[in-house]
Design a protein around this nucleic acid. Structure first.
Length: 573
DNA sequence: GAACACAGCG
DNA sequence: ACGCTGTGTTCT
């Protein structure tokens, strides 16, 4: 049962009736850029508010801006509501709950099916919500979503509260925890983080459009010139693998490798070994230029009013990391990052956690030696080098430190001797034999004994049960079916916990202190904030402290280090 | 259109 | 060797 609200007096009455509950269930129906209906209810009542009929939304603002909201994929609704000055103090998102609990599918319909055992009629979802008169069926459909949210909420809450984190007790005191009755640190974090992702998407990320346009023109001209000269010299399109293969094998008699399908391979790997041959050299240059130009154009395509507005998935990876798309702002090449520039009068504050996954690993497995090394402020890569090579730390060369870095990373990814040798070479330019790699691996585990025990127990469990179920330090659950996943997920996942918590603490503090800073990008272990020049030092201090506090909450035995800089562009200096 | 390889980032 | 997205190529 619901009441359809089309008059101002009815809205005021409805808001009064909903004022007792600490949180409300909400859904919206929209037409392009406008909200048509807001469906709002508590455990007893549901109101369907027609925004084409009701003018003054002040009562709604006053109501919702003091309450928690339960909804499905709330980021969508919150962005629309923000246009009307409506933004709740806390959020509980049933879609995020579904992700966090590891369900297979995350639509409202799937949740209803698996938790309530019936099916929703979604046929009115795409009906005409702009019609001057809505049908009874449309209104009933709209109200139905709030009804199911009401039924789903207690079930999801219970499931979430069964997630037990070793860390994050402090979070139980937050508004999100109290309003919804959440007791799981990771659930509190993810639910509160819905508002952060929403704001992140609304904020966008500022681009130096003049420079972008200039570079685009310049590279376009340069690419044209190079392609033209190639065409004239060889009568072949340098970007066509087929034509190129023909040219290089017949006229230049190159013995290029074959692809899996038996074709002549002209990929970068195949060509690089013949880079002293003139046309090959040219092709590689052309490809590099093209790649760079493609990225510029991709960025330009997504730029509006001097900013890009990427889509962020709050739980984009199984580990709990976010992902971004359209454009992907998390894989911008390092040499293109200076294209992002704070708006006139603003600056970026850029901060990242240093060596965070290794620190998390030390804490997670409680390895005495590595804990001690981090506590005493050692350079871990240098220290590992000294341990596996049996040399004093002062005598470790740059190359030896690079090798140790590969070993330490290998540890996080589930080390193997073969993988280590390959990774050291490709990733760090250090050549070692398989035998050497095996010796290093053994010495590594001889020293870091807790890692050895952990890896052994994971292998054993995997053998017996074919899967490993575990959780991050905040209590984020995961299931791994391979050894490498089983040792990587908790580390990468705890890193995700940490970043999200840091953003929450930062936002709480700038809100309290009325600092007009905006989080504009998040890249796994890095936070980028845009702030007015006059606030840059204050913002930097608050951000650093938020990140360190998050570090202290999640890592009790390892110090967390944060590197922060202030810059007009997205580069660290 | 799906599957794969590759390149970018953490 | 872990996680992602975007593009281009090749096969179905």
């Amino acid at each position: 049962m619901f009441k359809y609200i089309t008059e101002q007096s009815q809205l005021e009455e409805a808001c009064g009736q909903l004022s007792q509950s600490p949180f409300l269930f909400l859904d919206t129906e929209t037409t392009g850029d406008k909200i048509r209906l807001i469906q709002l209810g508590d455990f007893e009542k549901i109101f369907v508010i027609d925004l084409f009929e009701v003018e003054d939304l002040t009562p709604l603002q006053k109501l919702i801006n003091t309450k928690g909201i339960v909804g499905h994929n709330l980021k969508f609704d919150l962005k629309y509501l923000a246009k009307y000055g409506i933004f709740p103090v806390a959020t509980f998102d049933t879609m995020i709950a579904s992700y966090l609990l590891g369900y297979e599918r995350h639509s409202l319909n799937h949740l209803v099916g698996s938790l309530l055992g019936y099916s929703l009629d979604k046929s009115y979802q795409l009906s005409d919500w702009g019609a001057s008169i809505l049908t009874q069926n449309q209104l009933e459909y709209a109200a139905k979503d709030v009804e199911v949210l009401r039924e789903l909420f207690p079930r999801l809450k219970e499931a979430l509260n069964n997630l037990k984190g070793k860390r994050g007790e402090e979070l139980l005191k937050t508004k999100t925890a109290k309003i919804f009755g959440l007791t799981s640190p990771v659930a509190i974090t993810e639910m509160a983080f819905v508002k952060e992702v929403t704001k992140l998407e609304m904020n966008g990320f500022p681009v130096d459009t003049e420079e972008l346009n200039r570079l685009e023109k310049e590279f376009k001209r340069e690419l044209q010139r190079k392609i033209q000269s190639f065409l004239i010299k060889y009568r072949v399109d340098p970007l066509s693998p087929k034509q190129l293969a023909q040219l290089l094998t017949t006229r230049f008699k190159l013995n290029l490798p074959k692809t899996a399908k038996g074709n002549v391979s002209t990929d970068d790997k195949a060509l690089t070994q013949f880079s002293d041959v003139e046309p090959v050299k040219l092709v590689l240059e052309i490809r590099k230029l093209k790649k760079y130009l493609d990225k510029l154009e991709e960025l330009k395509k997504h730029t509006k009013n001097g900013r890009v507005y990427p889509e962020f998935k709050q739980i984009g990876a199984v580990t709990g990391r976010m992902s971004s798309a359209n454009p992907n702002i998390q894989n911008i090449p390092r040499d293109m990052r200076s294209l992002f520039k704070a708006e006139e009068g603003n600056l970026f504050v850029i901060a990242d956690f240093s060596q965070i996954e290794l620190r998390i690993a030390a804490e997670y497995v409680e390895d005495p030696l590595m804990l001690e090394a981090f506590s005493s402020g050692k350079d871990m890569h240098r220290y590992t080098a000294s341990l596996v090579l049996g040399k004093p730390e002062e005598e470790i060369t740059k190359e030896e430190r690079q090798l140790a870095k590969a070993i330490n990373f290998g540890l996080i990814y589930g080390i193997s001797a073969r993988g280590l040798a390959e990774y050291a070479k490709v990733g760090y330019g250090v050549e070692i034999s398989l035998e050497e790699a095996e010796v290093f691996r053994q010495r590594f585990f001889k020293n870091f004994k807790a890692f050895k025990r952990w890896h052994d127990s994971v292998k054993k469990e995997l053998k017996e049960k074919k899967e490993v179920k575990g959780e991050t330090l905040l209590g984020r659950p995961y299931t791994a079916t391979t050894f490498t996943d089983a040792v990587n997920y908790p580390i990468q996942g705890t890193g995700a916990d940490l970043l999200k918590l840091a953003v929450l603490l930062f936002d709480a503090e700038i809100t309290k202190r009325k600092i007009p800073a905006k989080v504009v990008n998040l890249v796994h272990d890095e936070i980028v904030v845009e702030t007015p020049e006059a606030y840059s030092e204050q913002t930097k201090e608050v951000l650093e402290r938020a990140m360190k506090t998050a570090g202290k909450i999640i890592l009790k035995r390892v110090p967390v280090e944060v590197e922060a800089t202030v810059n007009e562009r997205w580069i660290k200096d």
